[in-house]
């Protein structure tokens, strides 16, 4: 047995993170994360996206602290007011403060986006990897079902589900999830079909691993990075679908400050008081762009083929 620790214990965090001879599994994992972070840091647009997302997340978390008005308080004498010191982004058709409503709307938007991601990503991953790994009739059946879901435009499918289930945020989440998993399943299946013929899967088969073990411990970890990148890119379309449902009156219901619903009510005044519609519109735009930028960056960073 050779000596394992010739170097003295690294003193600083940075040395610990860059030590070429990690001393524990935790250190090795942290080093991996550190390398990913360094890679992401070099990617300017991803960093910009991440910053915007952090701002939006902070706005959502600290909404009660930074909001200036009660979001339900109506002031009909001061409706459709221009931005001013009192109302930073003006007021809407019922005299409610748009800035405060926007902050609370961020909560709803992020809630919908993350809940949908949390529901659709595992479903898509599971169906995709199962289908790709098992092949045969399982693959045929699962992929035909997936194609049925893919054949409909997602907003139309979501509309159908919401009208069946009734309007509301949670039903919107379910409806959008139903339309969000098929592309992920296709992606995971394609990845799995490449992975399952690789030597490292053959090697673990020769160690007597069960199909379940191979799927969960060897195939899925390889699919997860691209699924994460894909879901992050999907976040933008999820937010747009949620806003679309809200806009059509099938998502969040008034007086909820959901951005799509805000946009929908502001539509009536879009010609005379365009700033009322501009605020939620720009918020939706910025969030979508931020998710896209981060998703692009994550795809580069997480790709296992680039170490």
């Amino acid at each position: 047995m050779t000596d394992i620790s010739p170097s003295p214990r690294p003193s600083t965090l940075r040395a610990w993170l860059t030590d070429p001879h990690p001393h524990s599994p935790a250190q090795a994992r942290m080093q991996q994360l550190w390398r990913m972070w360094r890679k992401l840091r070099r990617n300017g647009s991803a960093l910009l996206g991440l910053t915007i997302l952090l701002v939006i997340a902070c706005a959502a978390i600290f909404a009660p602290l930074v909001a200036t008005h009660d979001i339900y308080a109506q002031d009909l004498g001061n409706r459709l007011a221009l931005p001013s010191a009192e109302h930073w982004l003006g007021t809407d058709e019922l005299g409610r403060d748009i800035y405060s409503r926007l902050l609370f709307g961020a909560r709803i938007t992020l809630y919908i986006a993350f809940l949908t991601a949390i529901i659709s990503a595992p479903v898509g991953l599971l169906i995709g990897t199962l289908s790709g790994y098992l092949g045969g009739w399982v693959d045929t059946v699962m992929m035909r079902v997936t194609e049925v879901f893919l054949a409909f435009p997602s907003l139309v499918l979501a509309l159908a589900f919401v009208s069946a289930l009734g309007p509301g945020i949670n039903n919107a989440v379910i409806a959008i999830s139903l339309t969000a998993w098929p592309p992920i399943a296709r992606l995971a299946r394609a990845e799995t079909m490449i992975i399952r013929h690789s030597d490292y899967i053959s090697a673990v088969r020769l160690q007597g691993a069960s199909a379940l073990r191979i799927l969960v411990r060897h195939v899925m970890p390889m699919c997860v990075p691209s699924v994460i990148a894909r879901v992050t890119l999907n976040m933008a379309s999820i937010i747009l679908s949620a806003a679309g449902l809200g806009f059509l009156g099938l998502g969040a219901q008034p007086p909820s400050p959901e951005w799509g619903a805000m946009l929908s009510t502001a539509r009536e005044f879009i010609l005379s008081n365009s700033y009322v519609a501009a605020a939620p519109g720009i918020a939706i735009l910025m969030t979508s762009i931020a998710f896209n930028l981060v998703g692009d960056g994550l795809r580069d960073v997480l790709d296992p083929r680039h170490g």
Binding site: D199, Y200, S202, A203, V204, R305
Partner: peptide
């Protein structure tokens, strides 16, 4: 069994 390509036979 030992495989031909050690770049492909270890889980990345």
């Amino acid at each position: 069994m030992v495989f031909q390509d050690p770049y492909a036979s270890l889980h990345p």
